[in-house]
Amino acid sequence: MGETKQDDRLILREASGPTPDCLSDDELMAAFESENGAGDRITQHMAECAHCQAEVALMRDFHEAEAGADEQGHVAWIAEQLKASFVESETVERNAPAHPRREVKSRGSFLRDFFGTNPFATTAWAGASAALLVAGGLWIQDATRSTLAPGVIDGPQVFRTTSIEGLSPRGDLTAPPESFEWNAVDGATAYKIEAMEVDRSIVWALQTESAAVAAPAQLRAIAVPGKTLLWRVSAVNSAGQTVAISEVERFRVAVQSSGGEPAAKKVR
């Protein structure tokens, strides 16, 4: 019974998810904006794919959504917060320094956005980002609580090189992961890795000095097809303080196409 429910979930996950034939983001955008006037491939695919139909319908919802009476106040508040975080460029010097003020704190995705390996393509944009960054000090400080685990330092010790990212495994895999890998962090003497169920209960944790570790057999055993697992890595300095923590990455072993599997006959 429970097993059957699980089967349903796997089938429905696969049936409602994207296939290799599905429209790219660019094609989805074209499908949404030109409705019937999109190219042949797009029109034809849209006619038969529930997933892409849903994606385009959600794009329309996004554009047409109207805040209800109970939502308007919250929307206005969020918009104000966004404004406060991005404005006040007048106060920013034209040649703002390309590094954050010392009181700027770590925020996983934020640091990755600005100090990761993929900064703005042109120096012109780098100038803009630096300006926004300094102006945005308010919410950088504000946002620490939601993403940092207890015990993570929140002082000025976090600098640009402390951004850490779980590199592998990520996304859909063809087999259970052989290893976990991340980028090395300046000043880190150890890395703590945690693998979790989707409810965040920890299934495996380990501390290591290198920037990669072999996946243990017990973890590979529970990584059955279709089961999503999460993991994250944090960097620890010689004083035992956590100096960086990655975003939670997810992975799962993809469900094999059900073609070859004999279907159990249902007794009615």
Partner: peptide, 10 residues
């Protein structure tokens, strides 16, 4: 139904 395959359900 058990015999449903993902492609067919899609």
């Amino acid at each position: 139904e058990r015999e449903a395959s993902a492609g067919f359900v899609r």
